[in-house]
Design a binder for these strands. Sequence first.
DNA 1: ATGAAAGCGCTAACAG
DNA 2: CTGTTAGCGCTTTCAT
Lengths: 354, 354
Amino acid sequence: MTTIVEVAKRAGVSMGTVSNVLRGTARVSPNLRKRVAAAIRQLEYYPGRVPAHLKVKQTCMLGMILPDITNPFFPEIMRGAEDRAFERGYLLVTANTDEQVNRELQIVSALRSRRVDGILLAASACNDTRHIHAAMEAGIHVVCLDRTASGVDTDAVLLDNVRGGHRCVRHLIHANYRDIAIITGPLQLQSANERFQGFKDALREAKIEPTRAWILQGDYRRESGYRLGKKIARLRNRPSAVFVCNGMMTVGLLEALEDKGVRCPEDIAIATFDDLPGGSTLHRRLTTVVQPSYEIGSRAASILMDRVEGKLTGPSLTVRIAPTLSLGDSSHAEAGKSTGSKSKRRSLTSVSSR
Amino acid sequence: MTTIVEVAKRAGVSMGTVSNVLRGTARVSPNLRKRVAAAIRQLEYYPGRVPAHLKVKQTCMLGMILPDITNPFFPEIMRGAEDRAFERGYLLVTANTDEQVNRELQIVSALRSRRVDGILLAASACNDTRHIHAAMEAGIHVVCLDRTASGVDTDAVLLDNVRGGHRCVRHLIHANYRDIAIITGPLQLQSANERFQGFKDALREAKIEPTRAWILQGDYRRESGYRLGKKIARLRNRPSAVFVCNGMMTVGLLEALEDKGVRCPEDIAIATFDDLPGGSTLHRRLTTVVQPSYEIGSRAASILMDRVEGKLTGPSLTVRIAPTLSLGDSSHAEAGKSTGSKSKRRSLTSVSSR
DNA sequence: ATGAAAGCGCTAACAG
DNA sequence: CTGTTAGCGCTTTCAT
């Protein structure tokens, strides 16, 4: 492997000079600069950042820990983060936890040993966050994404889940559904809890008493949507609408309903969090709370790099991002026969008007 | 930051000894070993791999270059690769090219400067592969995924595209469709070309003359599927079936058909490469050539690490992975009204029988 | 079995 | 402006 010394020798200068032209640290005479450039080209020298890191305490690598990139919610987040990172010369080291704290622990450890400058974390549902604490104490910046790590004071970029759930359910109520079931996420997860809260708020506002049997706890995964969908289909007093707290569960729910011959929206209305996998268009019949995932990743990465570079200091920040309500016809019984009407997508704020 | 020296001091041993207990390089007396362990715990010492790399020429990081993680075909590949990598102590540094060679070039460069041990590459469609050549000459192992980099002799894990296309189209023919259109991928891409080849082979076998106007070139992206779908819908002599060469374009095609009021399969049959985003179940009506994406990533990563570790030597390997044909009813006109029949999924080999 | 010491490739003072 | 030099944190001989 070619090193800086060889380049220096070849160009007949000192390694300090080579370093200087490479990094622009100091002014170098055009003459030498040219010779160095030539040597670099001839030797195909590739400056290595690894040893550099020993001096300059930066690797320009960010860890990105996600539950599962296979969940279509996350790739967009990753793109958002990557695009910002790449612009600023950072690379992303990514890993999936499958929601297992144990794995999260190993990953954090692996990232620390590689000396990443910071970590973007969509924390697994668990109260044991000692590893996060430890990392932060060691000076590694952490920005939480989508969900916070419980009991740790980090920067965070989160969706305004309460609001999303609230508006979504309110929409159902306004559309004249009053018997509304909910399929929640795993309630130990902050986001799931908040969406549930939004649901309850909306019911309370409308003075609707929540029905026990219509509160079904899922785990954000397809299987649970399927299982609970079957349960709903079998219910003697079936709700007229379901609010589903994420996209994967909605996929499962739709399968279950199809299997049971329950039609949407004729027999039951659906409104859900998350675009379904593949973008909304294919499923434009669904009414969904759309999360600006790309922006979530993008904002989080920017904050993280600002911290790393010292451009951002002070107490930790929490950014709440507003979701958007996309109106399909899964929540309008009379629209059942519609053929291919485009869904309207409005900013949530504007939806507040009836 | 705690360093190995401080640990050594604290434990009252030399840094060499600490290193030895850490890496198990040499036998250390239980006594000292215990003291070292204690010191490490007290100081919360986190061995860093960065300086280690200066001696041991390995970073245990693999680069993974994909066109776009947002394309639902890739997350599974990434999981496959990551799972294998993580097992063996490697981390993945990922980046997306958006099919732009220029960006690919920058990424390769960034990865090289971080001294990754090897690169998993789903190459962008381009003939200029000097950067790949250069990387390989510099001793960085490259394994191509899904598509090869043209003109470079690397290991590769590819789908058997010709076979997939062939079987899929043959299935259409057996189902009595003879007027078959194709929406290809970008033909400068090997995979697109091969699928097209499979299409042609199947027609030739059935002695069907290909119709010029039914050969539509797309670019694997949704928009092109939509555009070409409209074109098909407008055609005076409309084909009775379409073979679509990837999932994203099928999404577009379905949209276009819906917009034009063309029903599938009553008006036109569809068979496609790739599960649609969200898993097959939601779209189980579609007949698809299913790629074992997880396995592709998994195999590629294993080969790469074997190369890196010298467990695999010799000429470059090409693994061809067999796809699976999943029969839906999008390719059976009479099944149009079916409500929720499960799709049958058979191994391709068994499909060879009529 | 353990310690001392010489680098790995690069950066950053510091002299000149 | 340019060269010299002293590390960065760790591994790895090589003596002991």
